[in-house]
Computed example of a mutant assay.
Amino acid sequence: MMHTTNYRDTFIEVAEDCPAEHGVEPPLTENPTIATLHYRLIAEHPYSRTSDDVIFETWAQRNGVAVDDEAARARLFAKGQACLRSSPLGKRYGWGLHHDADGRVALVPRESDEYAALAADPTLSHTRAMRSRRA
């Protein structure tokens, strides 16, 4: 059985305890962090990848696996993976994640008019990024 992290017609709002007042690009480091990889994959090509694509490509880059290795992808998703609600982008860096009808994802900075419109859109499912700390 293949598990999935994909959402459709969903807006993941920033975590309640997110410290960023606006969308901040994660810092570039010698060894890219998960936040940096997620940011690059989504920001450079909005609405071109699903959550599963982002999760797999991040894992593949960190583990030296080809991003077109379907067998490795099947092995990774044979067990459940954390979805983008656990991404540092929504927990720490101030980015909402909008998933369109086809499950493709884009970043939305929390200070933007687009964020406010998506957060108020009754046609979307709404959830929040996971908190960094327990309430």
Rank of each mutant, 00 (worst) to 15 (best):
L28S: 12
P32H: 04
N6V: 03
Y7M: 09
R49T: 06
D68C: 10
Y7R: 02
K79G: 15
V108E: 03
A15Q: 01
P19N: 02
S87R: 03
D69K: 13
T58Q: 03
T29A: 14
L107P: 07
C83K: 09
M1G: 09
V54G: 08
S51K: 03
L107G: 11
S125W: 14
E21R: 15
M130K: 14
E70C: 13
A78W: 07
S112F: 03
E16T: 00
I34H: 11
F77E: 01
P19A: 11
A43V: 11
T10P: 04
G96P: 10
I12P: 11
F77S: 05
V65E: 11
M130H: 15
A43T: 06
G64T: 12
R49E: 13
T29H: 08
E21Y: 04
G103H: 06
L76H: 01
G103L: 12
T33N: 13
H3V: 12
H98A: 04
A72I: 14
G23F: 13
P122Y: 07
S48M: 12
G90T: 03
Y39G: 00
P46G: 07
A35D: 09
Y7A: 15
A15K: 00
A129M: 08
M2I: 15
Y7N: 15
V105D: 04
R128C: 14
A82W: 08
S87Q: 04
H98W: 13
R62C: 14
